[in-house]
């Protein structure tokens, strides 16, 4: 991948995926990996941090005789996601302007 993913953008992506439906560590990593080049172990600290800051919560559900921990979004998480989306929109448009050469209008 040519462009680097920064920490806040990765946070935003993770919250975005969880907002689309409760999910667990493995599928979450898979979904992000489809788009961004991250290692299998990248998301654990991120999930911990988002959980600590109250943007995500977890609950456990039995699966094939073992436990599976699901992550779901909180009200604070939804607000934060809206903020990230708005910020991204601004950033994306500005970059598009520069790339399109429209900055010298």
């Amino acid at each position: 991948m040519t462009y680097q993913l920064t920490a806040p953008l990765l946070d935003a992506c993770v919250i975005g995926v969880v907002a689309a439906g409760d999910t667990y560590g493995y599928t979450l990593t898979q979904k992000v990996q489809e788009v961004v080049d991250i290692s299998e172990s990248t998301l654990y600290p991120v999930l911990r941090r988002l959980q600590k800051s109250g943007l995500l919560t977890t609950y456990d559900q039995p699966f094939e005789g073992r436990n599976r921990r699901y992550y779901s979004i909180t009200e604070d998480g939804k607000k934060q996601l809206d903020f990230y989306k708005a910020e991204w929109e601004v950033y994306k448009n500005n970059i598009d302007k520069l790339l399109g050469g429209a900055s010298n209008e």
Binding site: G25, Y26, T27, E40, S41, Y44, R48, R66, R69
Partner: peptide
């Protein structure tokens, strides 16, 4: 917490019988 996460994660990764986990997982 970390050990539980990775225990689940390894189960979800569906490794073959004699596969070395650290190659794919790190």
């Amino acid at each position: 917490d970390a050990l539980n996460y990775y225990s689940e994660y390894i189960d979800d990764m569906n490794f073959a019988e004699n596969e070395d986990i650290s190659i794919r997982l790190g």
